[in-house]
Simulated scan of single mutants.
Amino acid sequence: MNIEYKINADLSPEQFIDLLKRSTLSERRPIDDKNCIEGMLKNSNLSVTAWNSGTLIGIARSVTDFSYACYLSDLAVSKCHQKKGIGKQLLSITQKQLGPKCKLILVAAPAANAYYEKIGFQRNERCWILERSHRIGQR
């Protein structure tokens, strides 16, 4: 298998949605909202993709300042290509694009916690999420 990795490659919403469906992320991403998916792609400023014979098989999609913080929004690898080091390579290439003090930060799906710990991420109990449906100060 010859995997080609690309940085900030053009990617259609359809290709991204297809990958999300072939990975485990489609359950937690708005795959039925094309406008939202388009915004996710358009407003990411760092993406690393993995391709096999012209087919998207993996992505690490981030928002970053390249100096201090890189928020990894998605790490997806198609199920049939998992456990082959593709996710690690996507993260490694992402990390190489960042400055020497820049941290990779993410919110993991519960099933992925062991994976991230295994590859060297440290658990942090200080993550907070405010859903759009909630207003600041309201419970």
Rank of each mutant, 00 (worst) to 15 (best):
M1H: 13
E4S: 04
K6L: 12
K6W: 05
I7W: 15
N8Q: 11
N8D: 15
N8S: 10
L11H: 12
S12I: 00
F16M: 15
I17R: 03
L20R: 08
L20W: 07
L20Q: 05
K21G: 00
K21W: 00
K21V: 02
T24N: 14
L25E: 08
S26T: 01
S26C: 07
S26F: 10
S26Y: 06
R28S: 13
R29F: 15
P30V: 01
P30N: 08
P30L: 07
I31H: 12
D32T: 10
D32S: 15
K34Y: 05
K34I: 15
K34T: 14
N35P: 04
I37C: 12
I37A: 13
M40C: 14
M40T: 11
L46F: 09
L46H: 08
S47H: 09
V48C: 11
V48N: 07
T49Q: 11
W51I: 01
N52D: 14
N52Y: 05
S53A: 03
I57K: 05
I57C: 02
I57F: 01
G58N: 07
G58A: 06
G58K: 06
G58T: 06
I59M: 13
A60E: 01
A60I: 10
A60K: 13
R61E: 14
V63M: 13
V63I: 14
D65N: 08
D65Q: 03
D65G: 00
F66R: 11
S67A: 13
S67V: 03
C70V: 02
L75P: 13
L75E: 11
L75D: 10
A76E: 04
A76Q: 12
V77M: 08
S78E: 13
S78Q: 04
S78M: 03
S78H: 01
K79P: 03
C80Q: 09
H81Y: 14
H81L: 00
H81I: 00
Q82S: 06
K83A: 15
I86T: 06
I86Y: 02
I86Q: 07
K88N: 13
L90P: 07
L90T: 02
L91G: 09
S92C: 02
I93S: 08
T94Y: 11
Q95A: 14
Q95Y: 10
Q95V: 05
K96V: 00
Q97N: 15
G99P: 07
G99K: 08
P100V: 00
K101F: 03
K101N: 09
C102A: 06
C102P: 03
C102D: 00
L104Q: 01
I105R: 08
I105W: 06
I105M: 15
V107W: 11
A109E: 11
P110Y: 04
A111V: 07
A111P: 00
A111Y: 12
A111D: 09
A114R: 14
Y116E: 06
E117W: 00
E117K: 14
E117L: 13
K118F: 02
I119F: 09
I119E: 12
F121D: 02
Q122D: 03
N124L: 04
N124E: 05
E125I: 07
E125N: 12
R126Q: 12
R126W: 04
C127M: 09
I129K: 13
L130F: 06
S133A: 02
H134K: 10
R135T: 04
I136T: 06
Q138D: 09
R139T: 01
